[in-house]
Design a protein around this nucleic acid. Structure first.
Lengths: 234, 234
DNA sequence: AAAAGGATAAAGTCTACACAAAATGGAATT
DNA sequence: AATTCCATTTTGTGTAGACTTTATCCTTTT
């Protein structure tokens, strides 16, 4: 239908293999024919088969091991991919007008819990920034962020009154590793005030730790407005 | 070090390009040389360059368009990949003993909100299953699930007293599309009872809708025990 | 029996080349 | 000035073949 050419595409092979898995023709743990044989079956080259199987493995359907061959994963560990949007984009995508406001920003020694979490040496300084993100006049997200001064010395000169710490960091320092956590937390008095919700309200929360080649860069807690949903399709 | 051969691998190219992005040598929005030119620079074939750039694009660093070329994404929309674990695996990974208990299961016409959510015709029947997942004797997750009978007729004969509806579905019906949502909800009296928490407690919640080629198969709400954290690294 | 070693099968990747598909930017037309 | 159209560039994907790497499985040795 869609392919005017008469050759077998790696996409065709992916589809066919997927169909065989779904139909039960290929049971969990079953060993697939090797690339050579599949190439003959689909009358294409091994290169094409390789790409198809490689992608299916990447998507979590198959497991491949040299010499051992390719197997159907018994419990396909399918992965949900969340694209983490920038707050501004998210607000605007929802039709709102993005507005940013700095709450506080000060330099201080890292509190113990943070030192433990980021494996900091005692007495390392951090910049503590708290800020609000609004959609129009409605609170959208309260951000509570710590930036490790030793990893980002420029932070001492940064002015967070007009630019959010996340935007500033993205422009300023690269990062290599991220740990992202979602959880539900309870609004204490302070948070309830910022988000304009009753105290005790459940608040969807994301924590994000960022490293640059093993060096901790920043820890952020993001508290979302009531009713926030983090959705993905796959 | 690791590559004994003297050829340039697509991995080398990926690393080099990533380094250039991180170092600022390649600014956001910058246009990369085309594959031909890069192939000459790295003294390898265009095929190899293609694979490197294709993967970097897939990982969210680059944007590629035919004829327009390859650009550095200004805000790399890096994606978090959550591997959605089976409850049993998750409990056992945390060192607990998994235990399952059926709460209720009955056949009924789909409630309006569900019909709307899954685009069901009026009067379609669903199997409503509620069950608990424990770690030892501690509640771990309360699952509230609806299964569309027209999509999975076998469900009328299924016995959910010993096997969880999720496990049963995985074994029985394939699926093609999933929508996954995370949110924070408030424990009402019923839920508080099941999870053994005070009423009003914030509860981390996941909703999952599954389709098979456009046909809605099942809708599930999973309420997690207090303190649950969904974490990923990337 | 257990450990060590080696032949071999399977996936992993590279080269070299060809043609396909898309979309941009400019030329031609209205 | 706007629109249509088309040549050209750039990525996308396929073929054919070779060599590399890994790890399994079998054989041999301890």
């Amino acid at each position: 239908m869609t392919q005017p050419s008469d050759t077998t595409s790696y996409k065709d092979i992916k589809q066919t293999v997927l169909r065989r898995i779904r139909s039960g023709e290929l049971q969990p743990d079953a060993l697939l024919p090797n690339e050579q044989e599949l190439a003959i079956e689909f009358s294409c080259t091994r290169t094409t088969v390789n790409r198809a199987l490689r992608e299916l493995a990447d998507e979590g359907y198959l497991e491949r091991r040299r010499k051992a061959g390719t197997r159907v994963l018994s419990a396909p560990h399918r992965q949900a991919r969340f694209t983490i949007p920038l707050v501004r984009d998210e607000v605007e995508a929802l039709g709102g007008t993005y507005r940013y406001a700095l709450v506080s920003s000060d330099l201080q020694p890292a509190p113990d819990w943070l030192s433990a979490r980021l494996a900091l040496r005692p007495d390392q300084n951090v910049m503590h920034v708290r800020c609000m993100h609004y959609s129009g006049n409605t609170p959208f997200q309260f951000e509570d962020r710590w930036i490790v001064v030793d990893s980002v010395p420029q932070v001492e000169q940064a002015d967070f009154s007009t630019i959010g710490p996340n935007d500033w960091l993205v422009q300023t320092v690269p990062f290599t590793n991220v740990e992202l956590t979602f959880l539900a937390s309870r609004a204490d008095a302070t948070l309830a005030g910022f988000l304009d919700v009753p105290e005790g309200e459940p608040v969807f929360t994301a924590e994000r730790i960022t490293w640059l080649q093993g060096q901790p860069v920043t820890f952020a807690k993001m508290y979302f407005a009531v009713g926030y949903r983090m959705t993905t399709e796959f």
